[in-house]
Nucleic acid binder design. Sequence first.
RNA 1: GUCCCUAUCGUCUAGAGGCCUAGGACAAUACCCUUUCACGGUAUGAACCGGGGUUCGAAUCCCCGUGGGGACGCCA
Length: 463
Amino acid sequence: MTVRTRFAPSPTGYLHIGGARTALFSWAYARRHGGTFILRIEDTDIERSTPEAVQAIIDGMQWLDLAHDEGPFYQMQRMYRYKEVIEQMLAAGSAYHCYMSPEELDHIREAQRARGEKPRYDGRWRPESGKALPTPPSGVQPVVRFKNPQQGAVAWDDLVKGRIEFANDELDDFIIARADGTPTYNFCVVVDDWDMRITHVIRGDDHVNNTPRQINVLKALGAEVPEYAHVSMILGDDGQKLSKRHGAVSVMQYDEDGYLPEAVINYLARLGWSHGDEEVFSREQFVQWFDLAHITPSAAQFNTEKLNWLNAHYIKAADDGRLAGEIRKRLAAQDVTVGDHPDPAQVAALYKERVATLNELADAAHPFYVATHPAAELRAQHFTEPALAALRELRGRLAAAEWQRAALSQVLKDTLAATGLKMPQVAIPLRVALLGQPQSPAIDAVLEVLGREDVLGRLDAVL
RNA sequence: GUCCCUAUCGUCUAGAGGCCUAGGACAAUACCCUUUCACGGUAUGAACCGGGGUUCGAAUCCCCGUGGGGACGCCA
């Protein structure tokens, strides 16, 4: 049997971090077993589904490079199929029409709650041998309900959580088709998973409670029941539940904030799943190692600090040319045009060891392309008379220097010898003069990358 | 309220009855490196929710509490 998994988001918003992890796990499981990964858009909620959200989800998956093998399938395009199955079930007696009005339903649910019971449909229109059904009111379009077994229990061995069992009498006869004839979620999922021959349903654990109903429908249809793996949710950095209002951001926000997709993938893989003590691993390694048995059953809190650490690691490992492209793109967003000089790849090489995000990298590169006038405070602090004298001395030597790091380093040392100052006493004012800030990578390397023309020009501006 | 799930350092986790005086990573602290700031290196502190069982032996199995989460829609 070949593995078939699916990711089935509803297009009511962007792809957030929890959905991304579920997608990653489903994708990885299929890849691990040489199976098929299917993308299915659950858009039966006409009110809230939008084409923009579909696109946002596809964009997010593309950024993370989670390619699907089949689909995207849209549930709205499969209506004929759901209706066909509903007719079959009606004919077979595993589903029935119910004429109870929404108002009446609300009413009984309220009463049940008041009595401390679990609110549920009371089975009024459920056909039973020897039971007299009420007369259908005229002019009322009925809903279709699933005739759930009332005896026994439904159980499955969840691949993450272990055995889970529900008593059938906890489950009511849920609606599979609305009064307008459109099928509902719990029903569409079942038909789709069945038709698409899904072998492993990997999804958020907010679906645990839907699973017994879905299994019962599957059984009523004579379909094979897939394996289930319910992955727990991701909490925000503060331990609070993620919601649209609170911390649940689009994965694309991570792109915007300067994270590399491979860092996000590695972080997400490690959030709720483990392979011994392994922390840093490639996507390929992850696929080789991935299993459902090592997914943690409890909720995990997102930790931006650790993501930052991983991101820093992947930036260090990234190709200079790629980082140059990121610098270009990110500075362009600030209306800064990055030309060929200084070479952005060289600037990237200078800073890739020191930054945690691509935005920090772009910020670091900024003064290489836009000459900054040192702030008054910095000038007052660093441009003391002896420092200025040393910079003048240095400027003279630089004008004639061979523009190569080792040579520039020697020029610096000669300047120290000539002025009797220590390295920091010259290097720090020089940094302020060149980049407008007292910290930078090794100053000889900065000189080399910045180039003679810019260096002399910027020195002249402050001398 | 009812049902379901869950519980190891601040955080992510290792741990499948003896290998655990509980390991790794992020973060924290200290020191080292250093041409500043970082990076990097080394070291240190830091946890098995509580109570009962089972067992020669429990972080690991069972029960009860407690905390956290989810579900109870003609939403998905």
